[in-house]
Nucleic acid binder design. Sequence first.
DNA 1: TCCTACATTGGACAATGTCTAAGTCAAGAA
DNA 2: TTCTTGACTTAGACATTGTCCAATGTAGGA
Lengths: 139, 139
Amino acid sequence: MSDLLERLRGRGWRLTAQRRVVAEVLDGDHVHYTADEVHARASERLPEISRATVYNTLGELVSLGEVLEVSTDGRAKRYDPNAHHDHQHLVCSRCGTIRDVHVQGDPLSALPEPERYGFQVSEVTVTYRGICPTCSAPS
Amino acid sequence: MSDLLERLRGRGWRLTAQRRVVAEVLDGDHVHYTADEVHARASERLPEISRATVYNTLGELVSLGEVLEVSTDGRAKRYDPNAHHDHQHLVCSRCGTIRDVHVQGDPLSALPEPERYGFQVSEVTVTYRGICPTCSAPS
DNA sequence: TCCTACATTGGACAATGTCTAAGTCAAGAA
DNA sequence: TTCTTGACTTAGACATTGTCCAATGTAGGA
């Protein structure tokens, strides 16, 4: 994740304690925190960090393409640091757990030209839903 | 859409003016209103209808499988009456316009067994994003 | 027509996100 | 090192979207 901080500094990012902490919280490949969760975890290391800064920083990371914004349920958006490897998401309908998954083929090619209605289609997100092993286990 | 009202009455739905109006607003195959838009349009015909009733009714229609809930942007959910024909969505990244589209093949089959991690996968939503003809036209 | 269980209402409340004005500080300049 | 400055952070008000509840109204069966 320190590569990330390097990359960002190379782009003129001013390196502050707050931004460093947010980046550290997002470290890891299979993390899908909400902004509030990021704020809670960042607060453990830097108690005075504000919500606004967390929102700002997450927004900047998304603009810079370092983090993906995922909204699986119409509730809080989640932030996915695994932005440099193409992947999709598998969500448990019961507990909301999210896993990164990899599909066969390019989902973009499944949309025929006449079904594009003149759009310049550039992106596709696929979300699978189901019940995870934990939730489907007999209680 | 009156088939819808019939179907619902058959399931024990009490038929009120409010519910009728909400159903009428959703009439049509390519409509993707937010709850507030549904409320605004319903209010034109039945000025005293409350927000709570619109939310309740939309929630019921979703539970009954008559309407789909679509959240394309992490903002307000949208309601799609085209629930009985399998389809996906194409969204304009600029103006937010939504079109129903049909893909080739079954997106579910693109997720290999080992990528399912023991989930009982039952649903998949595919959202294409791009710039619509209107937004890409030279101004 | 009358009853009553179900539906509706208005408004308070909750969750998530955005904005602003004032204070703070990282990093280059001297 | 110290200074300077524009970018960053903060607290809290505000906005949007959605949920909940107690009081009131009413659809549809008896």
